[in-house]
């Protein structure tokens, strides 16, 4: 017994001409959690506009770099449409197709978690490395901070963001922090115990 509109899947499919992957599950509390994979990240804005009309609230945006899947099926998909993805990769603003997004651990999966009258709907868009995604701020003001955080954690670009400054990280820190290995000693800026020891010894010599 879902509170999502009965024709939700049909309306979402109509809003996303490139194709969608829809699934929904209702738990024993009667709360439905639905997932909508978009074949093309370009369909994000029309889908979001439809959801806004339905009174949805943007709850969270998650960006991740999914690891290489082990299922053979998806590997095949990747090979089949790899050429298409490469052809489209040249112009920067053109969002890439879902099937053509390489699952090589560098492309991004961006999940937009919506709340519709208590039920959860997650819209999933795939963006290849170096790609970009449209900002949702014209539709959902509260996408602002989520997108700013996404931009500093990953190298993903958000187009038309009204205020693309750093959110939490200082401007002096290199971007895409979740995409590279940062040694703990560098992270905490205290260096290793050895570095600290050397500094202490040097300081002591200077004093003596």
């Amino acid at each position: 017994m879902s509170r999502l509109p009965q024709d939700l899947e049909a309306r979402l499919t109509a809003a996303a001409p490139a194709g969608v992957e829809f699934s929904a599950e209702t738990d024993h509390y009667g709360v439905t959690v639905a997932w909508l994979g978009l074949a093309s990240a370009a369909d994000l804005s029309p889908v979001a506009a439809l959801l806004k009309d339905m009174g949805a609230r943007l709850s969270m945006i998650t960006c991740a770099q999914p690891s290489v899947p082990e299922e053979e099926e998806e590997d095949e998909d990747e090979e089949n449409e790899d050429g298409e993805a490469k052809a489209e990769a040249a112009p920067k603003e053109t969002p890439k197709t879902f099937g053509g997004t390489p699952f090589d651990g560098t492309s991004y999966e961006i999940d937009y978690h919506f709340d519709i009258a208590g039920d959860a709907l997650t819209v999933i868009a795939y963006v290849p490395q170096g790609g970009s995604i449209a900002s949702l701020t014209p539709l959902f003001r509260n996408a602002d901070w989520h997108e700013r955080e996404m931009m500093e954690l990953y190298a993903v670009k958000v187009t038309d963001h009204p205020d693309p400054r750093r959110l939490f990280l200082d401007a002096s820190v290199d971007g895409a922090v979740l995409e590279r290995l940062i040694p703990f000693s560098t992270l905490v800026n205290a260096a290793s115990t050895k570095g600290l020891w050397e500094r202490l010894v040097a300081g002591k010599k200077g004093a003596a």
């Binding site: 991740a64 999940d111 509260n142």
Partner: peptide
């Protein structure tokens, strides 16, 4: 809200959460 994605390892692949205050600052 929590989003959790797990894989074959004991560690989660991605954990993301958003707390109420994150929304309320604005």
């Amino acid at each position: 809200i929590y989003y959790l994605r797990t894989n074959d390892t004991p560690q989660p692949e991605r954990v993301k959460w958003r707390v109420p205050t994150f929304m309320n600052w604005d």
